[in-house]
């Protein structure tokens, strides 16, 4: 390590590092794009396949039209879905929020009601109604390419105020809330950013470019996989759960020891 750190200060070290970096990035990039292009086109194909659109429409009419209208034009009970895009359907149906169990301040997450193929077909149908955010390319979901440190900074500026610094979620007005992001699939996190479900603001590609979104997802993944070094997390809720714990668990232990200490031995 010592030798390396000395050589690091060499005048040409920076140049060498830059060249090396460029070489690796270039190599990786060309490799990645070929793979991704293949996948992306495959994805795009599936979403524009007329069979899928037709099947999606059938599912839509049976399951969604009550609220969203027979042509997805929207009713009093549900908004129009024209132009919301495939990403929106993938998120709402894929996380089980839609179909909604009941009207409420906001749709609750629950086990998905449709399998992946059905979700894709529904998304294909809705996407065919009008242009909207598409399902993200796999390239931008590959967290290994993301920079968690940069993602963390973006997360704290753009997301933590609602979703909490540890992504544990938080309250909004009138019973609405920002959900916890623990265990949420990268594609759903991505889709939430591009579509702005419920009351969440939209983070369009002009606001956070796809690489930014990837960094944020990389941060979330890193955060979740790194664990909690101090011990049990107490729900990632910060000072409130810590205070609650010392007043319940901590004091219970202490009072038990006090009662034992002052009781007479038999």
């Amino acid at each position: 390590m010592k030798a390396l750190s000395q050589k690091r200060r060499h005048p040409f070290a920076g140049v060498a590092l830059l060249l090396l970096g460029l070489l690796i990035t270039g190599g990786l990039y060309s490799a990645a794009t070929t793979i991704n292009e293949a996948q992306a086109s495959e994805n795009a194909d599936a979403y524009s396949d007329p069979d899928n659109i037709e099947e999606g429409e059938r599912l839509f009419v049976a399951n969604c039209a009550t609220c969203h209208g027979i042509n997805a034009e929207g009713t009093d009970a549900g908004p129009s879905l024209i132009g919301v895009g495939a990403a929106s359907v993938d998120f709402q149906v894929g996380t089980g929020r839609m179909p909604m169990q009941m009207q409420g301040p906001q749709a609750q997450q629950k086990p998905a009601q449709f399998n992946d193929e059905q979700t894709m077909q529904l998304a294909a149908y809705v996407a065919s109604l009008g242009a909207g955010p598409a399902v993200p390319d796999d390239e931008y979901l590959d967290v290994d390419q993301g920079d968690p440190a940069r993602g963390g900074e973006l997360f704290r500026i753009n997301c933590a105020m609602c979703h909490n610094a540890a992504a544990a979620g938080g309250a909004l007005t009138e019973g609405k809330y920002a959900p916890s992001l623990h265990g949420v699939e990268p594609r759903h996190v991505y889709a939430a950013m591009t579509t702005g479900p419920q009351n969440m603001p939209v983070f369009s590609d002009a606001n956070l470019v796809p690489e930014d979104k990837r960094d944020i997802i990389a941060f979330l993944q890193t955060y979740e996989s790194q664990g909690t070094p101090g011990g049990f997390s107490l729900g990632f809720l910060g000072p409130v759960s810590e205070g609650l714990f010392i007043w319940t668990g901590g004091l219970a232990l202490l009072i038990a020891s006090m009662v034992w200490l002052t009781s007479r031995s038999s």
Partner: peptide, 20 residues
């Protein structure tokens, strides 16, 4: 910092003392 924006209600919420 009043940073919580709800895009449909157009409400801004302050997470510290919940001024909206």
């Amino acid at each position: 910092p009043v940073a919580l924006y709800e895009r449909h209600t157009h409400h801004l919420l302050c997470p510290c003392h919940q001024s909206t």
